[in-house]
Design a protein around this nucleic acid. Structure first.
Lengths: 320, 320
DNA sequence: AAATTAAGTGTTATCGATAACCCAAAATTA
DNA sequence: TAATTTTGGGTTATCGATAACACTTAATTT
């Protein structure tokens, strides 16, 4: 007990015993057992960060922001990567529940994540939702402005004279994919262009194994002159595939996408894109979460929408 | 106790009570408390992964491998990012010790990490060292072949006719930086070229804030015609700086480096580099660690050296 | 000087799970 | 049928920390 008081600096301790305890702690290489501590205190000082793709620079930069904020507040970070896979996400939620983390920063795989988030709610684990809004879930959430960003990207293409603009989208189960499609449509409507749904393909954000969608687009009687990839990983797939087919970007087709590539992207700044403040996603999300956990007042649910920045680089050019 | 037996499938339980327990568990949304469990069992089923730069694709890919292996074996991953900063690394080691993790996959910041690894040894926490060898530490270790890789990169440049080859290296406190320098020297010696140490700059792997080193190189009476950056992040800095100075790669200077850029690098495959199997680093490291923890036999320390692959792309060309 | 308050430290119960032991009833064996 | 074994499940102590309370001394107050 006396040791506990020295460690936590609570209660009254004479300077003499305090020193004596400190010395013995040193000599014995004593380090308090945080498991035992968690058990009595009913809090672990562990937060969980669940992201959907650890190889995507957007999420790693986000993770960096989350980590910085967590460390600053004295929390440890239990890390989980769902790989855009609902089953993995569910596994990790079980793990999170049994670990009794104090809160979760949750980037959901898609709308069906409502089940997993419901689990957290049922067990009263505070969480903040990142990047993708989930219908039916009331919580603090940090989002990007997918619709605006998409609209600006497509308007940029239209401004360059493109009229046949394809969209390689993520799954319709994901809010950002839906909103980016809405932005795509808005840009067309505002410019008086009609929307041709044969130009829109729905894949999966994570990667681009299925090239048949791109084949179909390129084989159209009136093929696209530009492609809007809904995120950075899809853009990588598109560009690689185009290159394999001997097509040059931007000479043969212009390409734009959402999300930048982190430091790696700086080697050859190439893609014109809408860059989201990934670090801020993580930092702000974590701040909201910690406020929820530590703050007494239960505020309204907060919704932070972070703007994205249009970065015009070399992957787009005026239609010849 | 009966519940515990049902959960762990130990002891004798009649099918009837087993079912009854399961049902009540369901009804009450009961989830075992892993903290309490850890306390009696004296193991947490948590492993820690400590990397030095979460924004570096090499480490995120490594993390992916580590995560996959950990998950497969039923371990949770406590995540830590030292940012190439010894103080942060120390903080995280303290956190790791108080969390009583079952083991640590440790990518050290440099030779001084011997202190932090010593802490782990003192507390009998098994660990595997990744990527950088630490003098004075006996442990399983997974490394790349820095010397060979560097030699091949520099020989490639020499083969293209370059004789004035600069090296932008990491800190001499890091084994890979030392070995890459050795490889650089070997390539010169084997080709009968002398080594000019004014062409070698020692910075820090993490980034490239200090451009004075590059300035000094470019202002030499006999400036380099090629640059070997000791890792991918340094290469990013070099290329950006060269571009700012109006120099073209590879027309004005050829550039090579260690480590690829993950999926992001695929957008515009540009840099000629020695690619290390990052995923394997994580996967194998984690396997060694789990073997150590779970295996009864205490083997000799194992040292795995993974080869790197030369990838020749567009950032190098023959000297005019 | 007696009564009260404060300072410093020790005791006991607790968090939630499991190891080790125990014990009744049922099943098997002699 | 009596003796033994097996089955199924309950008790108690434990992991390491902390909350709540108790108890000496020493310091103040009346």
């Amino acid at each position: 007990m006396t040791v506990s008081r020295v460690i936590n600096n609570t209660g009254r301790i004479s300077e003499a015993t305090r020193k004596r305890v400190r010395k013995v702690m040193e000599d014995l290489h004593y380090i308090p057992n945080s498991m035992a501590r968690s058990l009595v205190l009913q809090k672990t000082k562990i937060l969980s960060l669940l992201i959907t793709d650890i190889t995507n620079p957007f999420y790693t930069t986000l993770a960096r922001g989350a980590e910085d904020a967590a460390k600053r507040a004295g929390y440890r970070l239990l890390f989980a990567n769902s790989d855009e896979d609902y089953a993995k996400e569910k596994d990790y939620v079980d793990m999170i529940l049994s670990t009794r983390v104090d809160g979760v920063l949750f980037a959901p795989t898609g709308d069906h994540s409502v089940e997993n988030l419901g689990q957290l709610q049922k067990h009263n684990i505070p969480f903040v939702v990142l990047d993708r809004e989930i219908p039916g879930i009331e919580a603090d959430v940090v989002l990007g402005d997918s619709k605006e960003g998409a609209r600006k990207l497509v308007e940029h293409l239209i401004g360059l004279g493109h009229h046949r603009i394809a969209m390689i989208n993520g799954s319709q189960d994901v809010s950002t994919a839906r909103l980016r499609y809405t932005g795509y449509c808005e840009a067309h409507l505002l410019s008086g262009l009609s929307i041709d749904d044969t130009l829109v393909a729905h894949l999966n954000y994570r990667d681009f194994h299925d090239e048949s969608a791109l084949d179909a687009l390129l084989n159209l009687a009136d093929p696209p002159t530009a492609i809007f990839a809904a995120n950075n990983m899809l853009a990588v797939g598109v560009i690689q595939s185009l290159r394999q087919r001997g097509l040059q970007v931007p000479d043969d087709l212009s390409v734009v996408c959402f999300d930048d590539f982190g430091p790696a992207g700086a080697i050859s700044p190439f893609l014109t894109l809408a860059s989201q403040p990934a670090y801020q996603f993580g930092l702000l999300g974590m701040q909201l979460l910690i406020e929820r956990i530590e703050g007494e007042a239960v505020h309204e649910n907060r919704k932070i929408i972070l703007p994205s920045e249009m970065i015009i680089r070399a992957s787009t050019q005026a239609l010849k």
